[in-house]
Nucleic acid binder design. Structure first.
Lengths: 140, 140
DNA sequence: TCCAAAAGCTCTAAAGACTAGAGCATTTAA
DNA sequence: TTAAATGCTCTAGTCTTTAGAGCTTTTGGA
């Protein structure tokens, strides 16, 4: 007998709030699950995997649209190579851009913390760094 | 005579859309500027600096509320710097976590592209990577 | 088996951070 | 001087969630 999950169980397992799960169904990011005689949702294991993937990708900062592409990719592993290649490449460059931006941000935040040596705001460079783009250690 | 900017000039200089500038004024992130006889906004240099700071901070991922804190502290320069420090620290650890996650994803996407190179159909591991935390090269 | 509590259902509305459009007024530059 | 560009306010929409009201279904213990 196959294990099924209620929406609440899925919510806990994937750390996604119940209304969010219903929202994902509404925007067709999740397939509509089966229902009990009383109308309650019952999810198969596959739904758990997918929701977990969505949650993880969201956490990584991917847009819903990007996730739709991931899903499309995953659902058609036999699609022509060029198509897959193109989609993957687009996402890879996205990921790399994101990493670069975050590394720039890391550098700046580290510099801010270093210069903010628990003095008063008068000497705190966080505000200076934030106001003046030329002060940035990196481009973005 | 002091240089003043129209809202459109400010928009171009700071790369912030015109309605967004008005929105920032509405939520009191920007001081209401002076007006011409005809009622158009005219911004002093200081407004440009502030908007530039706000835009930069938003770009770095700070929330409006965090920015409010920065501004509040800028207006009270004798206050201790620790609060500001805390905000930056919180962001820094967040940023580092995200960098690690994305680097793991980059690895997977690169592998996918490689397997696509020989004209054969890629075995799509992206969904697995995204769903299964245990598969990740790094912790998060 | 019965019943209260927990969990689920739909629907509406809000939050945060913008963004777009309608319809009109003011500035600017040829 | 006059047409184009820009600005004004106001309303309403976007996207991704999240919360609440009011009702129904499930579940677990007596």
């Amino acid at each position: 007998m196959v294990k099924e999950y209620s929406i609440g169980q899925l919510s806990k397992l994937c750390d996604v709030k119940v209304p969010t799960i219903r929202y994902y169904e509404e925007i067709e990011l999740l397939d509509p699950p089966g229902r009990t005689a009383g109308g309650q949702r019952r999810y198969p294991q596959a739904a758990r995997d997918r929701l977990s993937m969505i949650a993880h990708a969201r956490d990584l900062g991917f847009s819903i649209d990007s996730i739709r592409e991931f899903i499309r990719m995953a659902d058609h592993p036999s699609a022509p190579c060029e198509d897959l290649d193109l989609i993957a490449e687009k996402h890879l460059s996205d990921v790399r851009k994101r990493i670069k931006q975050l590394q720039a941000l890391e550098t700046e935040l580290t510099a801010m913390l270093k210069s903010c040596d628990h003095g008063s705001v008068a000497e705190c460079r966080i505000l200076t760094v934030l106001s003046d783009h030329d002060q940035c250690k990196t481009q973005h």
